[in-house]
Write a protein that binds this DNA or RNA. Structure first.
Lengths: 319, 319
DNA sequence: TTGTAGGCGTTATCAC
DNA sequence: GTGATAACGCCTACAA
């Protein structure tokens, strides 16, 4: 592997001149420049990026932490991040955690070891304090409502959105409302749980623990959800499903059991994915791609900011 | 940021000794070792990985090229790769290409620039020769049948599998068989196309160009497919769908149009995903995760190998 | 406009 | 056991 010292020798110039040519710096005569260019041609020279990184103290690498990359919610966030990464000449290092703390720690470690410049955490397992401990090594962006902390955040108001969904269903006459989420822990889930319990209190409804169904991620989980609610002594008449894939799975499972939607079961999905349009599912549209883009930008600009994105309610046929 | 030179000063030893302690090398007295350890404690020192990379000439980073990471086929390959990466202490750099050559070239460039040690390409857009040109910079693994080339490959026999699917449908009485694929180009698609045209010739059936439907990737594409075949003058009676998500989408679209499966339309899916089981779709199971694992291993072991994986036919209710 | 020399942080060699 | 010292490949004052 040839290096700039070799090139310098070949071109009869100094390494500095070679470096200048390589990095398009000014103050190089055409003549020497061409000599260097020729040497590069002849030698199939290629920059050793690690040396550049070491010398510059930067890598142009950004870490992205997410639990599942095949899940549309995260895939869309990732898409937005990747879009901006491309424009800013950054590469991404992906950490698919399956919500294992150890994987998340690996990402934080890479930040600590300067292998990545910054980190976007789309959904975390670690405690905030663990994450804050790593802020000294580089910018970290979270995708949850965490105002006041010294790290940047991008989020939507899950509390308000859930209240809206619940009130909408209440107005439509529903009194037994359940909901499906990915996991019970996490800031977003807690906001939803809060909205739910406040709603139940407000209207003096029964707080039924089993109406909260977690581990709902993919289409096929819809079948499981339906079986579960049908097994309840008091089957809910409506479900808020925080993911259109699962909502579609429930709708499909209902069809094969001849359960009429929305008559026997009303459903509100989330994300407004193509599958929701196809299956005529009422859904909340989240601007996930833009949120991803925003997170990237927050991560490159060290400045700490907090940005809330708004959601849009799309009425269709499942309520 | 403290470095090992600082540590050496603090501990009253040489940088060599510090390095030995850090890397658990032998020949260092307990006493000095503890002094170094204490210095590390006191200084919140962290290894600069880039310096290690430069010094060692290795990064323990592997690149993974795939068109869509939210597509179950690729997500499963990735899962397998990630599993082995974890075990081998490798990190992954993801290149989601959307089949854009430029993105693939970025990955090849990173290999050239020693920013990654090796590269797994799950599906390529670039010409093989372009990829071969980069073999000098590190191992590259492809996921297609490419025996005889000097790069490692992991693949399944798409030709044989497709023949099996076609023969099975023929035996069931089908004479108008169409198929759905992701894209028309690519080694795998060409193998399938070959199987199809040979089949058509063998049984003297009509080769109908419009029976080959591409751009079939996600559940919601199923609706599009159904509309399309219903618009044909000679609607196929059976479809081979190279992806269970799309197959499920077709089944769902059929339900809402009261098209009976398999009576009016038979369907064979691919991948045997959970959704296929849920919707009782006949499918071919591909060992995608194992294939991913294998690709990782091929990429770390520089030795060139070719490995074929076999598929399993899962009979269910859609044929 | 050009070049010398020192530095980035770590590892490896070799002598003691 | 231990420690100088020379790589690794590049960047950048600073001097000329």
């Amino acid at each position: 592997m040839t290096n700039i010292r070799d090139l310098a020798k070949m071109a009869g110039v100094s390494v500095t001149t070679v470096s200048r040519v390589i990095n398009n710096h000014p103050y190089v005569s055409e003549e020497k420049k061409n000599a260097v260019l020729k040497a590069i041609q002849d030698s199939n020279y290629h920059k050793n990026i690690n040396a550049v990184h070491l010398s510059r103290g930067k890598t142009l690498l950004m870490g992205v932490v997410l639990p599942y990359s095949d899940h549309p919610y995260f895939a869309l966030l990732l898409k937005g991040i990747a879009k901006q990464a491309l424009e800013h000449n950054y590469k991404l290092v992906l950490f698919q955690t399956d919500y294992m703390k150890s994987r998340e720690l690996e990402a934080l470690d890479m930040l600590k070891h300067k292998q990545i410049d910054s980190l976007v955490i789309c959904s975390r397992s670690c405690h905030v304090s663990t994450i804050e401990d790593h802020l000294q090594y580089g910018p970290i962006v979270l995708c949850e409502n965490m105002k006041g902390k010294e790290l940047s955040t991008t989020f939507i108001n899950h509390y308000k959105t859930f209240v809206n969904a619940l009130e909408y269903l209440y107005q439509k006459g529903h009194r037994n409302i359940g909901y499906c989420i990915g996991r019970k822990t996490g800031t977003n889930s807690r906001q939803r749980e809060l909205a739910y319990s406040n709603f139940v209190n407000k209207y003096q409804l029964e707080y039924n623990q089993e109406y909260i169904i977690d581990q709902c991620l993919y289409f096929e989980d819809g079948e499981k959800v339906l079986k579960r609610i049908l097994g309840m002594t008091n089957t809910p008449s409506a479900l808020i499903v925080t993911n259109d894939q699962v909502a579609a799975g429930i709708v499909t499972a209902c069809q094969s059991l001849d359960i009429s939607i929305p008559k026997q079961l009303a459903i509100i999905g989330f994300d407004n994915q193509p599958i929701a349009r196809m299956m005529n599912i009422t859904s909340f549209e989240l601007p996930l791609e833009e949120m991803g883009e925003n997170m990237f930008l927050q991560a490159v600009n060290a400045e700490v900011t907090h940005k809330e994105f708004s959601v849009q309610f799309i009425e269709r046929g499942t309520v």
